[in-house]
Simulated scan of single mutants.
Amino acid sequence: MYDFRPAPGTSKPELHRQLVDAADALTADERDPVANMANVAALMGEFLDRVNWAGFYRAVGGELVLGPFVGRPACIRIPFGTGVCGAAARDRATQLVPDVHAFPGHIACDGATRSELVVPVVREGETIAVIDLDSPDLARFDEDDAAGIERLAELLSTRI
Rank of each mutant, 00 (worst) to 15 (best):
A23R: 04
L15Q: 12
D132Y: 02
R50H: 13
R140I: 11
D21G: 10
C85M: 03
R123L: 14
L133D: 05
R58S: 12
V130N: 01
D110V: 12
G55L: 00
L117Y: 03
T158D: 14
E143N: 09
R31W: 06
T113F: 09
K12I: 07
R114F: 06
V121W: 09
A42W: 11
F80D: 09
L155R: 14
W53G: 00
I128G: 01
A153R: 14
D145R: 01
D144W: 04
A93W: 06
A25D: 11
R92K: 15
E116C: 14
A102I: 07
F80E: 09
T10R: 00
A42E: 14
G9S: 08
A38S: 15
L43G: 02
G45E: 07
A28T: 15
A28R: 15
Q18G: 10
V130C: 01
G86L: 03
R140D: 08
A41R: 05
V34W: 13
D3A: 15
E14A: 15
W53F: 04
V118D: 01
T113L: 08
A42L: 14
P6W: 07
K12W: 05
L138M: 12
E116I: 14
M37I: 10
A129K: 00
V60W: 03
V121S: 04
A147T: 14
D110R: 07
P104W: 08
R72P: 03
T27I: 10
G86E: 09
E46F: 10
A146G: 03
A102K: 14
C75Q: 10
A87C: 10
L48F: 05
V20H: 04
T94H: 03
L48D: 03
L96D: 00
R50L: 12
V84D: 00
R31N: 13
V84P: 00
D91I: 06
L96N: 01
T158N: 08
L152F: 12
R17N: 13
V34C: 06
L133M: 09
C109E: 10
A87W: 08
D32A: 04
N52W: 02
A129E: 03
H16R: 11
M44K: 06
S157W: 10
A139T: 05
E46I: 13
G61L: 07
G55H: 01
A28P: 05
G62S: 07
P120D: 02
P79Q: 15
G105S: 04
D134G: 04
V20T: 11
I131A: 00
L155N: 06
G55P: 00
L155G: 08
L64G: 01
G125N: 01
V40P: 00
I131K: 02
A102C: 09
D29Q: 13
V65M: 09
L64A: 02
V20S: 02
R159E: 01
E14P: 00
D49M: 10
P68E: 14
V65F: 06
E63Q: 15
Y2T: 12
A146K: 06
L138R: 09
L19I: 05
G105R: 03
T113R: 03
H101G: 11
A22V: 03
T113H: 07
A22L: 02
F141S: 03
D21I: 06
D142C: 09
T94S: 11
R5T: 12
A108F: 05
A129S: 03
D21P: 04
L15T: 08
F47V: 02
V34E: 14
